[in-house]
């Protein structure tokens, strides 16, 4: 009886304590350790003692490292392009799915899921074959459809520094647009029909209904989907790593790839930790900004 009382009084912290310990071990500790490392010159390339260097790594990153700024630019380019296209396409697909009842709608929705279910490395391998400039499927299709002549020759896709990021974005769009579409389809399904009917009675055209009623009403859902993609795009690693390793040159080296190179190619753990902390702040900052903007717009 007494034991039961003690349990009732303390269950509120006892029950979640397992999860709390788990989170502490797997999230808080690595984060703290990374922040600590970022203030050291820990490197495996020399056998020297690890020294505390204060903010030197950060100062180097911000004021002496052009490669860092280049990777930041490419991260923003990749993320911006992928997100904008994915959101527009995703919303269009969702609206088409919502508006029309056609046979095979469920099957089509399941097929959309398949791209997301594939493992990124497998996706990357398949797209490597597709993008291959001489024997790839895409250039074959371009050639046979006459597009190649129109574009003035063979496309180099990921082997050319100017087209590598748009090519990688294309894969991201292929893989992740369905996610936006599915989230927006779910959002559309929760909307009441009455405002639409009311707008019809009010005299609105389908075009006006879409832009003045539907879009503002699903804006919060689109916002959530976009935020998810934003965070994911900023962090994209696997596809780029498998397909280009950041190349040609540094032309597809995003911040994540650069950090990876710094730690596991150059074994410069102190500097790489500082890069990771900067990266974390960047992702956190952009996410908070988007969330704040969403609230500000009262969406």
């Amino acid at each position: 009886m007494r034991m039961g009382d003690w349990y009732d009084r303390n269950a509120f912290w006892l029950l979640p304590s397992g999860a709390v310990i788990f989170i502490l071990m797997l999230m808080i500790y690595p984060l703290g350790y990374t922040i600590y490392n970022s203030f050291t010159d820990w490197s495996l390339t020399h056998g020297d003692k690890v020294n505390f260097v204060g903010f030197r790594n950060y100062l180097d990153i911000f004021f002496r490292d052009d490669r860092f700024w280049g990777s930041v630019g490419r991260t923003i380019y990749f993320t911006g392009l992928a997100m904008v296209v994915e959101v527009i396409l995703g919303v269009l697909i969702a609206v088409l799915f919502d508006a029309k009842d056609f046979s095979g709608k469920r099957v089509a929705r399941s097929i959309m899921l398949m791209a997301m279910m594939a493992t990124p490395v497998a996706v990357a391998m398949v797209w490597l074959l597709i993008f291959e400039p001489t024997a790839g499927v895409l250039n074959y299709l371009f050639k046979s459809s006459g597009l190649e002549a129109l574009l003035g020759g063979k496309q180099l896709w990921i082997t050319d520094s100017s087209s590598v990021i748009p090519s990688l974005v294309l894969i991201d769009i292929w893989e992740w647009t369905p996610l936006i579409a599915l989230i927006v389809i779910a959002g559309l399904a929760t909307l009441s029909r009455e405002p639409y009917e009311s707008a019809m009675v009010d005299g609105a055209t389908p075009f006006q209904i879409f832009f003045r009623i539907t879009l503002p009403m699903i804006a919060p859902t689109i916002g959530v989907a976009a935020l998810l993609r934003l965070i994911d795009c900023l962090k994209t690693f696997d596809i780029i790593y498998v397909m280009t390793m950041g190349g040609p040159g540094y032309s597809s080296e995003t911040l994540n790839i650069y950090t990876y190179q710094m730690s596991f190619q150059y074994f410069n753990f102190g500097y790489a930790s500082a890069l990771l902390v900067v990266f974390l702040c960047l992702v956190l900052g952009i996410s908070l900004l988007v969330t704040y903007l969403r609230r500000g717009l009262e969406l």
């Binding site: 009441s192 009455e194 009917e197 009311s198 019809m200 009675v201 005299g203 503002p216």
Partner: peptide, 21 residues
């Protein structure tokens, strides 16, 4: 005739207000 050309106005059970306006 479509609803807009019938010169009618309708009040719905769930108000049907536009939440963002």
């Amino acid at each position: 005739l479509p609803p807009k050309d019938r010169n009618i106005a309708m009040v719905f059970q769930n108000y049907a207000l536009y939440p963002h306006m």
